[in-house]
Design a protein around this nucleic acid. Structure first.
Lengths: 152, 152
DNA sequence: ATTTTATTTATAATAATTATAACCTAATTT
DNA sequence: AAATTAGGTTATAATTATTATAAATAAAAT
């Protein structure tokens, strides 16, 4: 954990931003809840536990900054809230998501499944791909087995 | 055009909704501007030309309804506004988008490029895919050639 | 030590969306 | 045909997410 904070600190410094206490508290929350997909409000409430004097606007600004530096990714599952997701160390691309329409759970996929598709887009549409967003909507494993059980 | 209106009318009736004049005006705007990715506000302004007495809330409700019936798809390119996009007739899946980070243009791809990827997700993650959202962010053909010209 | 600059807080403003109440209209029942 | 009912609409208010602003603070530079 400390190691990753250090790295993020360096990334900020390299663009002449500093890792203020508020920013550090925000990053720590993101690191601790790496599996989740927190909204700005969620992050704010969690950061408040560490640094009660922080303001919501600061959290927004920090998330925006981290987003610009590609330390976090800003996603939108279509529910009207932006969610913020730490980019895995060394990951060049945005990871993918499986959103369950039954239980609302969100699973992440790190594998890069789009290499072939990107090649096709590049070639056939002349479009130079820089990043992507891929989300599948469907039914997760748990809900499938639950559904089967229910009919037995 | 009339043919497609008829089809949509039937789709609504089959769920015991009716195609009111306001709904029809909204659908007509979507049909006329099929290439675009209009926000609710955009649609509202355009519908107002046909039916000046319509309210914004009605447009929202109509778009929401059309969305539920899978007649339109609701997308979010991350700029804080939901955009509404007519689903092509007979299309089972949501189409993909190429968003240019230079000029902001949005191009559509109808081809289903994800068949293989969906098979993998189905098999390796046990996730039953119902729909997907795929957006590429990058530089479109026009902006690439413009960039080349600029350095000449 | 003083000036400059970046950052934050608190608050207000804006923008998108949704909820509510009153009204209207078309269909259904009497 | 008159009365009733339910769905749909308008106008307006409320809510929610996000961004902007001004004053206060802290850190860095001179």
């Amino acid at each position: 954990m400390e190691h990753r904070i250090e790295r993020i600190k360096k990334q900020l410094h390299s663009q002449s931003y500093k890792l203020t206490p508020q920013r550090e508290a925000t990053v720590r929350v993101l690191l601790e809840r790496e599996e989740d997909h927190l909204s700005a409000e969620d992050v704010y409430l969690l950061v408040k536990e560490k640094a009660p004097e922080i303001g919501l606007a600061t959290v927004y600004r920090t998330l925006e900054l981290l987003s610009e530096l590609k330390i976090v990714d800003k996603i939108n599952f279509g529910d009207g809230v932006s969610r913020y997701d730490l980019r895995k160390e060394g990951a060049k691309h945005f990871h993918h998501h499986l959103v369950c329409i039954e239980c609302g759970s969100v699973e992440e996929i790190e594998n890069d499944l789009l290499e072939d598709v990107e090649r096709i887009v590049q070639k056939d549409w002349g479009f130079q791909v820089k990043d992507h967003r891929l989300t599948f909507h469907g039914v997760c494993k748990q809900c499938q087995t639950a559904a089967v059980k229910a009919t037995e």
